[in-house]
Design a protein around this nucleic acid. Structure first.
Lengths: 340, 340
DNA sequence: TTGTAGGCGTTATCAG
DNA sequence: CTGATAACGCCTACAA
């Protein structure tokens, strides 16, 4: 194996010039054959393709990027890679961009602005043609670097009237309010929130509480989670609400379907009937929301559409298309099922 | 905004030469200041840093990579980005590699070999210093390209004695067998499997069934899922087992915790007692496995360790360290909880 | 249809 | 400690 390694490392990577030599043409002709085959005679094209085949030539995108000042690379920053909420729109974004010839360099910020700033710089050093950021709050330095880079930037999963460049998302404040109105309309006068440690989640919570009370509801109880949302945390939160806060009846608005699911589990264990004793509303409409028992009432955000729209807008910018719409509000939708 | 855009696009990106000019030194000195500050006098270092600060200079890693033949880029291919099983080890892998100065270019193959092959070529064109692949089955062309690239490659989440280069994982066959032994030891004579459309999952299923029957168990019933694992699919599978296959008692081995969870939900709805009527075993030990009700008996694979070991091995190769161990078997562990 | 020349922004090498 | 100079592999003119 060590032997093997040495041989492999000694392997000079094959270049366009080498392919050209083998095909009896110059390096440029090979370049043309690859970028626009119609500009090369059928015969030489065939010889070049043959040479590529036998040599196993793979073009050097690094050199190409340096020469053309186009990296065909777009980078993305999301808070967490294991959170389906984000990975879902990253997928549709990636697929859309990949269809247009771009690759995606993805990193996670762990919800930390300082980390994000470092990553922005790191990503920028790869000279991406564009960039996707999650959220609208970024450090001053990050904004400065981004602006200085002069590339299209899309901020997603939130809404602002003054994006760095482009913005595709929805209003978390509106979402929280909408849930409050839904709950009040259904007649609930008591409510609680279970919220993960995420600024946007707290914005939803806050809007919900304010609106719920404004609409005549009682003071909203709350349970805040320290870390990321997990089923276990949802269970713990319900215990806390029940045992420490004396919350026994009403509706609980969770910052994610996962937490809502945890509440369902804990309720089942404790023999609490849902929605009769306590009603539950989630957020996100994950793929399991309809499959848990009772089926989860929740807020749907079309994450596929979000990824696609973000890609569309970015591509429009990259094509100097004038159809760009700096801010796109995708909205959200209340999905009523059984839990509330 | 359009105005803004034009200005930004006109912005020539600042180069080392520009920074040097401002600091009164040559471009090379700036390069040194960045790569090894100790080789530059304290005073010029200060001036250079100042110039970098005011200009907002971000080094061009593209040019650096071309010149040094080191991209500080490692790429990774996983079947699905939204599946926590994979994103979890990608996270630990990424963090480990990032600590060593590498960035990760990640793509998903959607479990399709043809897609994987195309992506291998695309990734290779970025001239990564190393690559991570999920699984040990790759198209002949993909192997050829990988070998030709002469870079370290680590295959994870499976085991083979003849990896392309490095391998860190566990044996799915052994895992399936271990579950069968566990089930037989607990006295179950009847069993069924619920399996997602994934080659490795089927290898586990097959090993389970063979071993279960070899150990005196009855013929193993089966329900296969078409697409990806989801709670709803798990529910459907239980209904199928119950209603179409007359499977009423015994243990069900699922190819993932998600499917097992679906079975728990469906059982609850239908009033089937777990584990008294039917026992359930999952796979993966996801973070919710202990939090569902009843708590899930499952197979744990240390995905964080997997990502870290993969990174370690890759880094050892990159450092020409001789401590590389071509094949690392991380094993797995039966986690007994309440569902079986 | 094909080729030549120059340059992209770094790093490596060699001088001073 | 600092500075020329030559790659790196490709793309964009411009020529033939």
């Amino acid at each position: 194996m060590g032997q093997d390694r040495d041989t492999r490392n000694a392997n000079k990577r094959v270049t366009m010039a080498a392919v050209g030599r083998m095909a009896g043409v110059s390096q440029v002709t090979v370049s043309r054959a690859l970028s626009d085959p119609s500009k090369v005679s059928p015969d030489t094209l065939r010889r070049i393709r043959e040479a590529i085949e036998v040599t196993g030539f793979v073009p050097n995108a690094i050199a190409g990027a340096l020469a053309s000042n186009k990296s065909r690379l777009v980078t993305a920053l999301i808070p967490s890679i294991t959170n389906v909420v984000y990975s879902t729109f990253v997928r549709s974004f990636s697929e859309h961009m990949r269809g247009a010839g771009y690759q995606i360099l993805l990193s996670e910020t762990g919800f930390a602005p300082a980390e994000e700033e470092a990553l922005v710089a790191a990503h920028l050093s790869r000279r991406p043609d564009g960039m996707l950021l999650t959220g609208i709050h970024h450090s001053a330095q990050a904004r400065r670097l981004l602006l200085g880079a002069g590339i299209p930037v899309v901020e997603v999963w939130d809404l602002t009237s003054s994006p760095i460049d482009l913005c595709v998302g929805f209003s978390h404040t509106d979402a929280g309010r909408a849930v409050a109105e839904f709950a009040r309309k259904k007649g609930y006068t008591q409510a609680a929130t279970v919220t993960a440690a995420d600024e946007r989640a707290h914005r939803r919570r806050s809007a919900f509480a304010t609106q719920f009370e404004a609409l005549g509801g009682q003071r909203v109880a709350r349970a805040d989670i320290d870390g990321a949302a997990r089923i276990g945390e949802g269970r713990k939160a319900l215990r806390h609400l029940l045992d420490a806060q004396g919350f026994a009846r009403g509706v609980i608005f969770c910052s994610s379907d996962l937490l809502a699911h945890g509440i369902l589990v804990e309720a089942q264990v404790r023999g609490i009937r849902i929605p009769d004793d306590i009603a539950v509303i989630g957020f996100g409409d994950q793929d399991y929301a309809a499959d848990v028992h009772p089926a989860l009432t929740t807020v749907r955000v079309d994450r596929d559409a979000l990824g696609n729209r973000a890609a569309e807008q970015l591509l429009a910018r990259l094509d100097n298309n004038d159809l760009v719409q700096p801010v796109t509000d995708l909205g959200f939708e209340m999905i009523e099922r059984e839990s509330c």
